[in-house]
Design a protein around this nucleic acid. Structure first.
Length: 266
DNA sequence: TTTTTATGGTCAC
DNA sequence: TGACCCTAAAAAT
């Protein structure tokens, strides 16, 4: 589930459900007890997202800031619970609740309390986020023009672009018929700009629909059957030329690409 | 029933 | 490069 669109959607939903309200925070699992004890009963100010990082700001009397930082990693997941909720399961890291809503978080890579400074440190390590900086293609282009690593590797590097994950990577490369192993600095500004624009479009659609969709045959994206929402990720044959899709590993993640359509180019 | 896989990331060597 | 963290569901047996 979690690429950037998921996190931004969570921020949007959680802000709507909890923003401005007094919340109860608990850690049934115990691994976030310290944070939960500190936040329980405070006012939830807002939820924001940057790349794959979710942040909650709480109202606090000090000046250092009071934030929760959540990173879902590969397994992290939020589940909505109806009120009144049942006793949480053993793996519930955090339960967040007010008088109208309840969500349970399980399996995150990170769930921690941070100060303003701590949050800034996290965000500072991230590159531009197509969902936050959509008009900042320049920044992305300038950064990638300097990098010699393969474009397929760079798309997963959160310090280059924040929010793109393994599915969007393969799909973006296919959309632009790029060989994943082309060094980024060999790509033209036009190509990089086109990549960025596609990322902006797709991620917005992802937030809107709460799913990854990269294939559109007219009509509303949501109408497409699940199997037809992607072009190359986990496909066996190329939708354009019928050639078998190559499955490989790049930056420790499974990469799907068409060896015939995706050729190196500028 | 067991094993593998997954839309992620960090750290040590 | 590999070990490891975390959870759940799909796939293999």
């Amino acid at each position: 589930m979690p690429e950037g669109h998921t996190i931004h959607r969570l921020a949007r939903d959680h802000h709507k459900w909890f923003g401005g309200s007094v919340v109860s925070v608990a850690s049934p699992q115990g691994r976030f007890s310290e944070g939960a004890d500190r936040l329980d009963g405070l006012k939830f100010k807002r939820a924001t997202a940057h790349g794959k990082h979710l942040f909650y700001e709480f109202v606090d009397d000090g000046t250092k800031g009071l934030w929760v930082h959540i990173h879902l990693g590969l397994f992290g997941r939020f589940r909505k619970r109806k009120l009144p909720p049942q006793t949480p399961g053993q793996n519930t890291r955090m339960r967040l609740m007010n008088d109208k809503r309840c969500v349970d978080l399980s399996g995150p890579t990170r769930c921690e309390v941070l100060t303003h400074r701590g949050r800034k440190d996290v965000v500072h390590r991230l590159g531009p986020d197509p969902l936050l900086d959509e008009f900042d293609a320049e920044h992305f282009i300038a950064s990638l023009s300097k990098r010699r690593s393969a474009i397929g590797a760079i798309l997963l590097d959160q310090s280059a672009v924040a929010g793109i994950g393994n599915v969007y990577r393969s799909e973006l490369l296919f959309q632009h018929r790029l060989d994943p192993f082309t060094p980024a600095n060999q790509l033209s500004e036009d190509t990089l700009a086109a990549l960025w624009d596609t990322a902006v479009d797709w991620l917005h659609i992802g937030v809107q629909t709460n799913r990854i969709i990269t294939r559109f045959d007219g009509g509303s994206p949501r109408a497409l059957p699940k199997r037809e929402r992607l072009m190359v990720y986990k496909k066996r044959f190329c939708i354009a030329c019928d050639e078998p899709i190559t499955v490989s590993t790049q930056r420790q993640r499974t990469l799907y690409h068409c060896p015939r359509c995706q050729v190196a180019r500028v």
